[in-house]
């Protein structure tokens, strides 16, 4: 016991120190470790979740852009098809139009020719009648003798032919 005394060990002080440490442990456990560890865990979870979300959104973004590309390719294909079709249609149309136009022009030409022919005939006929009349007048005047006009015309007509 003297040894303990010399070392300064005192039961009352020892007890006081024991109680002090236990109180300290309890207080630190309640107010420092518990809450801090909880918050650390919370943060870890939050960060993990955030990273996961980021990864997911990355994936989704990649998917979407892939889809986008596919859609674009499809659209381009469609567009090309449409253009091709319309080109074909246009070419066909043009050919048709050309054929039609040719036909029409040929028809018109023919019609014009016919008309010209008709006109020519008409004019010729008119000229003939005019000439006949002229001749009739002239011969009437020259001969001064009036045949009846029907005989006269017959006569002229025969002479012109």
């Amino acid at each position: 016991m003297e040894l303990l005394d010399n070392l300064g060990i005192d039961g009352r002080l020892l007890l006081a120190q024991l109680i002090n440490f236990v109180i300290l442990l309890a207080v630190l456990y309640k107010f420092a470790y518990g809450p801090v560890l909880k918050i650390l865990e919370e943060r870890t979870k939050k960060i993990e979740n955030g990273l996961k979300d980021a990864e997911e959104s990355h994936k989704k973004l990649a998917e979407i852009s892939e889809k986008e590309a596919a859609v674009l390719v499809e659209a381009r294909k469609n567009a090309q098809q449409i253009i091709k079709k319309s080109e074909e249609a246009a070419v066909k149309n043009a050919e048709e139009i050309i054929v039609l136009a040719k036909d029409q022009s040929i028809k018109m030409l023919e019609q014009a020719k016919k008309q010209i022919e008709q006109e020519k005939e008409k004019i010729l006929a008119e000229v003939k009648t005019e000439v006949a009349e002229l001749i009739m007048v002239a011969t009437g005047k020259i001969i001064d003798e009036k045949l009846d006009s029907e005989k006269d015309r017959d006569l002229i007509n025969r002479s012109i032919k």
Binding site: Q17, I23, V27, A32, P35
Partner: peptide, 24 residues
């Protein structure tokens, strides 16, 4: 012992203060 008590008081006050100001 006096030093122990002062030290304990400081630690306890600090931890209480920390608890109140804890943020994510």
């Amino acid at each position: 012992l006096l030093m122990t008590l002062i030290l304990s008081a400081i630690i306890i006050l600090t931890s209480l203060n920390l608890r109140n100001k804890l943020k994510l």
